[in-house]
């Protein structure tokens, strides 16, 4: 067997060692296994992609064609997307949704960082108990608090405004606190101690040492909260109610088909427009998502 045909294994320090050459039978077995793996994965991918393909195809059909059983648009009706804008005030709903999502995210990030800091990087009596309480609220079904909260917001005359969807975010979010704390714990104590020797206050240590190091975790909670509020339906349904000026995209879309008596093509076009920002954000920040989700499940 020639050296060139040998499999080379690269060691971490850059050197390579020659590996035992593969027999033809072994090579054939591996090739078949690889084909099998990809066939399986491609089949599964098709199942995951098919709904999206149907949605996109239908969103491009003419009104008439979307009443038929045909699956592929003929001709392509790109004007459907413009029609959605004409049918509902999509810009206004997008603006409302963006306001809620951005402001809530800011609130959660700003309020959760100090709490997570105190729960992970300062020592005090009752810290463990406080952390367990945070964990417990994570398990709490939101239904058990929602009636009195609604009553409070009615009394404050906040129903029919965006406030009930934004203000509570400024008081910490259990999930974000949990995730940040887990991350803060992985930062070595020596870094804070060095800053303390230099006379830094806890606030300074948090903002100058810990926050810069915890950027991935902060990005993850920001993304999760943005997405949660962007997608949320139950909150807006309760608190915005029938005030159409403040409708979010979720609310507007939920009754789009019924209210506007439209065919599936426009409904699918509107759904696509609603998903679009999520898709864009996902592609821009896929790594943050994947790392963030992983952080929630395994380190628990």
């Amino acid at each position: 067997m020639l050296t060139a045909e040998r499999q080379m294994i690269r060691l971490p320090d850059g050197r390579s060692i020659a590996h035992r050459p593969l027999s033809p039978a072994e090579r054939r077995r591996r090739l078949l296994a690889s084909i099998g793996t990809h066939a399986m994965l491609i089949a599964t991918s098709v199942m995951f992609l098919l709904p999206m393909v149907f949605v996109i195809a239908t969103s491009l059909m003419t009104d008439h064609q979307s009443l038929t059983r045909e699956l592929w648009p003929r001709p392509f009706e790109w004007g459907n997307f413009a029609k959605v804008f004409a049918r509902i005030d999509l810009l206004r709903f997008t603006w409302n949704t963006t306001q809620i999502a951005v402001l809530s995210t800011v609130g959660v990030v700003v309020s959760s960082i100090p709490v997570a800091y105190a729960l992970s990087r300062m020592r005090w009596r009752g810290r463990q108990a406080a952390f367990l309480l945070v964990l417990a609220t994570l398990m709490l079904p939101f239904q058990v608090t929602v009636v009195p909260l609604y009553v409070i917001f009615v009394r404050l005359h906040w129903i029919g405004s965006l406030k009930p969807l934004i203000v509570p975010s400024f008081f910490g979010d259990a999930f974000s606190i949990f995730l940040l704390r887990q991350f803060f714990l992985t930062i070595p104590d020596e870094l804070s101690d060095a800053a303390r020797v230099d006379g830094a206050s806890e606030w300074q240590i948090m903002t100058r040492v810990i926050v810069p190091l915890a950027k991935p975790a902060i990005a993850a909670i920001a993304l999760f909260n943005f997405l949660y509020n962007w997608n949320d339906f139950f909150g807006p349904l309760l608190y915005i109610g029938t005030n159409k000026h403040l409708y979010t995209l979720s609310l507007a879309l939920s009754e789009f088909r019924t209210v506007h008596h439209v065919e599936w093509n426009l409904t699918m076009a509107a759904s696509l427009l609603f998903m679009l920002p999520v898709i864009v954000i996902f592609f821009l920040a896929q790594r943050v998502f994947v790392e963030g989700v992983t952080l929630t499940g395994v380190k628990g």
């Binding site: 949605v55 599936w264 759904s271």
Partner: peptide
């Protein structure tokens, strides 16, 4: 690539997903 394909649907807005499936599974067309 596969991971992206499997993961992305879980981020889609539930309202949009519900409408998409209502269409895909609608009995007539």
């Amino acid at each position: 690539v596969y991971r992206t394909i499997f993961f992305m649907p879980s981020l889609a807005p539930p309202v949009a997903v519900a409408l998409a499936f209502l269409f895909i599974f609608n009995p007539e067309t």
